[in-house]
Amino acid sequence: MGKKSRVKHRSQQETATPGEVGPRQPCPCGSGRRYKACHGSADGPAPAYVARPFAGLADEADVIAMREMVPAATAPVRLRDGVTDADRAVVLCSLLPGAAPGLVRQDGTIWLGLQVQHAFGDPSRELAAVLEKALAAEPGDVVGLTAAPAEGPRLQDLLTDDPLEVTVHRGFDFWVADVDDPTGAIASSLEAANAAAHPAARLTSVDAAYWTDVSTKEHLRWVMPHDDEEQLLSALARLHAAGKDSLVEGSRLVGMFRTNGVLVPVWDLPLGTGAEVLEEPAAAFRKHLDAALADDSPLSTEERSARSGLANRQLTIR
Rank of each mutant, 00 (worst) to 15 (best):
M1G: 09
G2D: 05
R6L: 07
V7P: 00
V7K: 05
R10G: 04
R10Q: 00
Q12A: 06
Q12W: 06
T15E: 10
T15W: 07
G19S: 11
E20H: 13
R24C: 13
C27N: 07
C27F: 09
G30N: 04
S31Q: 02
G32H: 14
G32Q: 15
R34D: 01
R34N: 05
Y35K: 01
K36F: 08
K36P: 12
A37C: 14
P47V: 13
A48L: 15
A48Y: 02
A51M: 05
A51E: 11
D59A: 12
V63W: 02
V63S: 10
V63H: 01
R67Y: 09
P76Q: 11
L79G: 15
L79C: 08
D81V: 14
D81K: 12
V83H: 14
D85K: 12
A86L: 08
R88A: 15
A89N: 06
A89K: 08
V91W: 01
S94W: 00
L96Q: 09
P97K: 04
A99P: 02
G108V: 07
G108W: 12
G113H: 13
L114K: 09
Q115K: 11
F120V: 09
G121H: 13
V130P: 00
V130T: 10
K133T: 13
A136G: 04
A137H: 04
E138S: 02
V143G: 04
A147M: 10
P149R: 02
P149Q: 08
A150G: 12
E151M: 01
E151D: 12
P153D: 09
Q156P: 02
Q156L: 03
L158C: 03
L159T: 05
L159K: 06
T160F: 07
V168G: 02
R170E: 14
D178W: 02
D180H: 09
P182K: 10
T183A: 15
T183N: 15
G184A: 03
A185R: 14
I186E: 06
S188T: 13
S189M: 10
A192S: 15
N194L: 07
P199S: 07
A200S: 05
A201D: 06
V206W: 00
D207T: 11
A209R: 13
D213H: 02
S215R: 13
S215K: 09
K217I: 09
L220C: 06
P225K: 02
E230I: 08
L232Y: 03
A237G: 03
R238C: 03
H240G: 12
A241H: 04
G243Q: 02
V248R: 01
R252K: 14
V254A: 11
M256V: 04
F257Y: 08
R258V: 08
T259L: 04
L271M: 02
L271G: 12
E276K: 00
P281Q: 08
A282Y: 02
A283N: 03
D290Q: 14
A294L: 08
D296A: 00
S297G: 13
P298G: 10
P298M: 03
T301L: 11
E303A: 03
E303Q: 05
R304D: 05
A306R: 06
G309S: 09
L310V: 11
L310G: 09
A311W: 00
Q314A: 10
Q314T: 05
L315S: 02
I317E: 12
